[in-house]
Amino acid sequence: MREFENPNHWDTAAHHYQKTAHPFTARYAEAALARTSLGPGSRVLDIAAGTGALALAAARTGAQVLATDFSPGMVACITAAGLHNVEARTMDGQALALPDGEFDAVFSIFGVIMFPDWRKGLAEMARVTRPGGHGIVATWQERGAATFLLLGDIRRKLFPGREGMAMPEAVGALSDPENFAREMIVAGYRDPRIERVTHDYELNVAALDDPDRLFGMSPDWTSLNDGEKATVITEVRQRAGDRPILPIPSTALIGVAQR
């Protein structure tokens, strides 16, 4: 089992994820929401919800939201938000314990792409979407985003030929918009639209003083020895120059399709 497929890994990382990744992924969640029409009375499902970037944003439209994740630690973070129209449950997105056609909109923001059987995850999304409802999926492009993207780029420059972090299979498969659209159709959706959305991840250069906290979730970092880590930090500082913030342009693909 790869680390990102283990719920215990995400339980341990939940609060760190909430502080660091959540504010960034929330920007893509808002972009996904902008491609649908929700309001009071809408029934929304967020699969592999993490700490709830999409679920909490959807709740602000007045929709009734169910957020699911296989990590109890992530689910606890959503529950702690205390919103009356958000319910959070621990659940496997590859085998949802939910009836067919239950939801007007079903989202997975960088979630289903992490599943061992991601095609089953897409099919489950379609199964629980009502006829005429929408499925919305966000995936990163092939080399990832934010600090993962930066580290991969630096590793290829400093250590050419050395194997880097293996991305989840779905990230590679869905990086091509035509393939992405085709997989949504196979899952049970129709008329998919795939759009690119880019935001800058703003890396605070001061955070390099504690690089293990900044980069510690990436195997591209943890697989380095101390000397190699120091070389990477020097490279990041050189890229930043005199700037206190180093922007890392990160592109996602957002697919929207109808059931």
Rank of each mutant, 00 (worst) to 15 (best):
F159H: 02
P131N: 06
A166K: 14
S71F: 04
E183F: 07
G144P: 00
T12K: 12
G188V: 02
D210P: 02
L174C: 08
V112E: 04
E102C: 15
N6Y: 03
P116H: 04
L203P: 05
S108I: 05
H15V: 12
D200A: 14
L122P: 07
G152D: 10
E87T: 11
A67F: 08
A55N: 01
K157S: 15
D191N: 15
V86K: 09
F110V: 13
A95F: 07
H9Y: 14
H134R: 15
I248V: 12
Q258Y: 09
Q141H: 09
N8Q: 14
D176P: 11
R196P: 00
L203R: 04
R182W: 03
G132W: 07
V197C: 10
I245L: 02
G144M: 11
R237Y: 06
T51A: 13
E169Y: 07
A55F: 01
T231R: 15
A26S: 13
R213N: 15
F148W: 13
G227C: 09
G111A: 07
F103W: 01
D176T: 07
G241I: 02
T139N: 15
T20W: 08
T20N: 12
R182K: 13
D46S: 10
T79C: 05
A252Y: 01
A34H: 12
R155V: 00
R27M: 14
T36I: 15
E183K: 02
L253N: 09
E124W: 12
G101S: 14
G135K: 05
V256M: 00
E142M: 12
S71G: 02
R190L: 10
V65C: 05
R130N: 10
R127I: 06
A257Q: 09
F110C: 12
T20C: 03
Q141S: 07
W118Y: 15
F148P: 08
D46I: 04
S37F: 06
A57V: 03
V256K: 05
N8M: 02
P249H: 07
R2L: 13
T36V: 15
S175T: 12
I136S: 04
A21G: 00
G132S: 11
R162W: 13
P40I: 03
D92L: 01
A170W: 01
F103V: 08
L56F: 10
E30I: 14
F103Q: 04
V197S: 00
G172F: 11
L83Y: 00
P219H: 08
N85G: 00
D100A: 13
F159D: 01
M114G: 03
S250G: 11
T234N: 15
S223D: 13
Y28D: 07
R127V: 05
P131E: 01
N85T: 05
P249M: 06
A181H: 06
G82M: 01
V205H: 04
G255V: 02
V205T: 10
R130L: 05
L45I: 02
V128S: 03
E124G: 08
L224V: 10
V44C: 09
A81H: 11
V44S: 03
R119K: 15
E5A: 12
W140H: 01
D209H: 13
L208G: 05
Q238V: 02
S218F: 15
P219L: 03
D220H: 04
I248L: 10
F107A: 05
V75T: 09
I78D: 03
E163D: 14
S250N: 04
